[in-house]
C-alpha cells in the first residue's frame, strides 16, 4: 500500500501539470509547455512566502497564487497573444518552450541550482493509512489535486464560462461569432492555470523542494499523463496522472527502474488500440 500511496503522490504531481495543460488547451487551443515551469515557480513563490517572509500558510498560498497567475498572464501576453491572429499551433509550441526556458533560466540565475526547503505548516510525521505510510502533506496534495481536478471538470461542464471555453476549443471563429470574447477567455485560462499552480505550490514544494530542474521533469511527465488520459479532457488528465503515477511506482517497485516508462508506454498503446476515440478529447481531433 505504501507503494500505491507513493504512486498517488507522484500521480498527483503529474495530474496537476495535466490539469494546467488542459485548462489552457481547452480555452485557447494552445499547448502551454511552460506549465511545468509555472509549478516550479510556484514552489519558489511558496518558499519566498513561507521561509523568506515568514508568512502564515494562508498568506503564503495567496501570495503564490497571485504571483504565479501574474507570471502566467505575462507569458500569455508575450508568447501567445501575438500568435492568436494566425492560429499557428506549431509556433505556439516554440514560444511556450521559449517561455519555459526563460523561466527555468531565471529561476537558476536568481535562486541558484540547489534545492530549497519550504517551511511546512503542519507536522509531517508519517501517517499509516490503509496499511500504507504517507506524509500528511502528501496526503493533502492528493486530496487537493482530486478536489481541483474534479472541481474544474464539473465547472467546465456546468458553468457558462466552462461551456464557452469548450466552444472555443471546438471552433474559435464560430465561438467568436457567437459573442464569446476569445481573447479574454485565453488570458483567463492562463490566469486560472497559473493560479492553480501557485495555490498548490506549497504542497508540491513540501514534497519536491523548490529547485529549477523540477519544471522540466514535470513538463515531461505531465505530457505522459495527457497521453494516457486524453488531451482536452480534464477528467482524463486527472486520472491519467494518477494512473501514470501508480504504474511508475509499481513497476519501479516490482520490475526495476528501467521499466516504468516502458510499461506506461505499453499501457498507452493498449489504450490507443482499444479505445482510440475515447482517450483523446474532442478538442484535439479537430486541431490537427
Amino acid at each position: 500500500m505504501t507503494t500505491i500511496w507513493s504512486g498517488l503522490v507522484i500521480g498527483a504531481l503529474y495530474s496537476l501539470v495535466a490539469i494546467g495543460y488542459n485548462t489552457v488547451l481547452l480555452a485557447s487551443g494552445v499547448f502551454n509547455f511552460a506549465h511545468g515551469q509555472l509549478i516550479m515557480l510556484a514552489t519558489y513563490a511558496s518558499f519566498l512566502g513561507s521561509v523568506t517572509f515568514h508568512l502564515p500558510w494562508p498568506l503564503t498560498v495567496l501570495f503564490a497564487t497571485i504571483a504565479v497567475a501574474v507570471v502566467a498572464i505575462v507569458e500569455e501576453r508575450v508568447a501567445i497573444r501575438p500568435l492568436l491572429a494566425r492560429r499557428d499551433i506549431h509556433a505556439a509550441l516554440i514560444t511556450t518552450v521559449g517561455a519555459s526556458t526563460v523561466m527555468s533560466g531565471l529561476a537558476e540565475v536568481t535562486a541558484g541550482s540547489d534545492p530549497k526547503q519550504l517551511a511546512i505548516p503542519i507536522s509531517n510525521d508519517p501517517l499509516t493509512i490503509l496499511g500504507g505510510v504517507i506524509a500528511p502533506m502528501d496526503l493533502l496534495l492528493i486530496i487537493a489535486t482530486l478536489a481541483i481536478g474534479l472541481g474544474i471538470h464539473f465547472w467546465s461542464r456546468r458553468s457558462l464560462l466552462g461551456i464557452a471555453s469548450l466552444a472555443v476549443a471546438e471552433n474559435r471563429d464560430a465561438a467568436s461569432v457567437r459573442g464569446i470574447d476569445t481573447k479574454l477567455l485565453g488570458v483567463g485560462a492562463f490566469a486560472v492555470a497559473g493560479g492553480i499552480a501557485g495555490a498548490t505550490g506549497l504542497l508540491v514544494g513540501a514534497h519536491t523542494y523548490a529547485i529549477p530542474s523540477l519544471g522540466n521533469s514535470l513538463a515531461l511527465f505531465g505530457f505522459v499523463a495527457i497521453a494516457i488520459g486524453g488531451a482536452g479532457s480534464q477528467l482524463g488528465g486527472l486520472l491519467g496522472g494518477f494512473i501514470t503515477g501508480i504504474i511508475f511506482a509499481l513497476s519501479a517497485r516490482y520490475i526495476g527502474s528501467d521499466y516504468p516508462q516502458i510499461v506506461v508506454f505499453g499501457v498507452f498503446l493498449a489504450v490507443l488500440l482499444t479505445r482510440p476515440r475515447g482517450i483523446f478529447g474532442r478538442a484535439m481531433e479537430r486541431v490537427v
Partner: peptide
C-alpha cells in the same frame, strides 16, 4: 553563462512570434 537559458528562451519566443 548563467544567462544562457534566459537568452535562448527569449530567442525562441521572438523567433516564434516574428518568423511566421
Amino acid at each position: 553563462n548563467q544567462w544562457q537559458l534566459v537568452l535562448y528562451g527569449a530567442f525562441l519566443i521572438l523567433a516564434g512570434v516574428f518568423l511566421y
